[in-house]
Design a binder for these strands. Structure first.
Lengths: 315, 315
DNA sequence: TAGTTTTTATTGATAGTTTTTATTAAGTTT
DNA sequence: AAACTTAATAAAAACTATCAATAAAAACTA
């Protein structure tokens, strides 16, 4: 039994297809077929049920695959140990970022990070939280940036910052003439929200507890961008909440519609997330340090309203 | 990086000598040397410091060895998974048994076990508790039978039975004329005990708490057998405690010196112990079931009557 | 210090394996 | 039934692990 054989098994288990699995393993299909046969012979069991299309795992196959994942992960860790010892921070690092964080956070740390760690080849992908979770589990991503908490057993979270929401109130709205809004004044019925990241831990105002996605407003919002939200809001379909960093590039006219919240402000928690197996942890730590650095210094977080939630949480 | 290479590394780490490690790995020394060099080249670090005699691990080497142990253990588990699936209970099973348990317990379960699991090649070794612990940690034993608790992080315990101690009181002793002894009457100063297994969990009379090995009796006992203890006791050097099963083959004359304890009796806990990695668990479970079967329900330390099935079998 | 022993590294031959290309077989789809 | 997918098989080529023999280095010895 070799680690290579186990990797081939994992590849077939993932793609349910020998040919595709072979491509992803950078070998030809017969190579992969033979090695898997050899392993099956050695163990005296069939791992795959080849009669089903697409190929299925046998009962033992399922258990073997789970154990193979453990073994392959643990062997990858050897390289981590060596890198850590050499103080080497490098290699490929695949990072997934949710769309609503990408444009604001990426420009802030990318330069800083690539300068500090020139040996790292950052591969960044803009994908949804759900896909990040899936890809972290499959080892197709090394880490992700998303709104937390996720409450997923497989995934560890490293909170980076808390980004307060600012209200965007259309002219006709009942709260338009207020200078500041209190959370208690919010009527969940007339707020437009993205699914993305409005659930929080206890210490922050938790919008998702009161926010009902099955509202009786007559339409359901599936948009992934705040731009759509802003337009809908200005059409008079209700107020909305924008993450603070997204309000910075609004037009002067639109900025007039913004209303801050009184403390405690609603906010979203943005975290660096990674698989519980904690592979490539030096890289994850390096990324966290880079982001921490820019958040503390580079951005104008002199603003009291942003600093306060940050300070609350920063232990 | 291959599992074979990692096994070679573990072997050298254990024996601190390439030649001996090679023998234990059933390959020639150049083979082993080359494979370790290849791994070191691949990782770009030295695992061993060959200039020191005996060979030492480097700093990274130490961490690599720890991780290699994990990987090798986890890969052994694949075979376990297959065996479990096939319902196959077989292969080599190396069991260490402490001297004071060996003669009483082994004859009771050995026949039963080998008949029930003919495919298992039991390799039994009579060794001390300390050596069992060491060999379990090195993977040179699959399980052990010893008096517990051991309070060792690495080792899991599966209690099998509680064996009460019976007092052996020489004629001159102050307690000789008592029919039964109460634990409270014991004077630790005049009891001869083996180091072996007189420590207990809370629920049992705990002799080791009060028993001071640095006694001021003028001699220190290092014997490993109860026979010596009996002789010393009859010489008038003090009373002693014998595990119940050991009292069965005393001569009729010696049996006259025995005194039972009133409830709660002092007793020793005998457990099946194994490494926390839980390899070959089907075999461990099989062994436990066999022993349980012979003992027919756990022996309660507080009730002499429950011991009767043991007595039946032993006679 | 020179000789002896012990231990690890090196070399070259060989057996064994992995991988590849090309082909066949089996099963689907059109 | 032809066209297409997909996995298994065969044979050749590339590669690797292993061994025996030996060299080199280090540690004793006398």
């Amino acid at each position: 039994m070799t680690i290579t054989q186990l990797k081939y098994v994992l590849s077939v288990a993932e793609y349910k297809n020998f040919t595709i699995a072979a491509e992803h393993s950078f070998v030809t299909q017969p190579t992969l077929s033979m090695q898997i046969q050899k392993l099956e012979d050695h163990l005296g069991v069939l791992i795959f049920n080849r009669s089903k299309k697409p190929i299925e795992l046998t009962d033992v196959g399922l258990k073997i695959v789970e154990q193979a994942k453990v073994i392959v992960n643990e062997s990858n860790r050897i390289v981590d140990i060596v890198h850590q010892h050499k103080g080497f921070v490098g290699g490929e690092f695949k990072l997934g970022i949710i769309p609503t964080v990408m444009p604001t956070l990426l420009p802030m740390f990318l330069n800083n990070f690539t300068k500090k760690y020139p040996k790292v080849k950052l591969i960044i992908e803009e994908i949804t939280t759900e896909e990040i979770i899936k890809k972290l589990s499959d080892n197709h991503l090394d880490a992700g940036l998303a709104a937390t908490p996720l409450e997923n057993e497989m995934i560890k979270e490293m909170p980076l910052y808390y980004e307060p929401f600012v209200g965007l109130i259309p002219k006709e709205h009942r709260l338009f003439h207020k200078k500041e809004i209190e959370s208690s004044e919010l009527e969940m019925e007339d707020i437009l929200l993205l699914e993305d990241g409005h659930c929080f831990k206890d210490s922050v105002i938790n919008l998702c507890r009161t926010y009902n996605t099955d509202n009786n407003r007559g339409f359901k919002l599936e948009s992934g961008s705040f731009d759509t939200l802003i337009k809908l809001s200005k059409e008079g379909l209700g107020m909305t909440l924008l993450p603070y960093l997204h309000t910075l590039d609004l037009s002067e006219i639109d900025k007039k519609l913004l209303r801050d919240f009184t403390s405690p402000q609603p906010a979203r928690e943005i975290s660096l997330i990674y698989h519980k197996s904690q592979l490539k942890m030096q890289l994850v730590e390096a990324l966290k340090n880079s982001i921490d650095g820019v958040i503390r210094g580079a951005i104008s977080f002199s603003d009291v309203k942003i600093i306060s939630p940050l300070q609350k949480k920063a232990n």
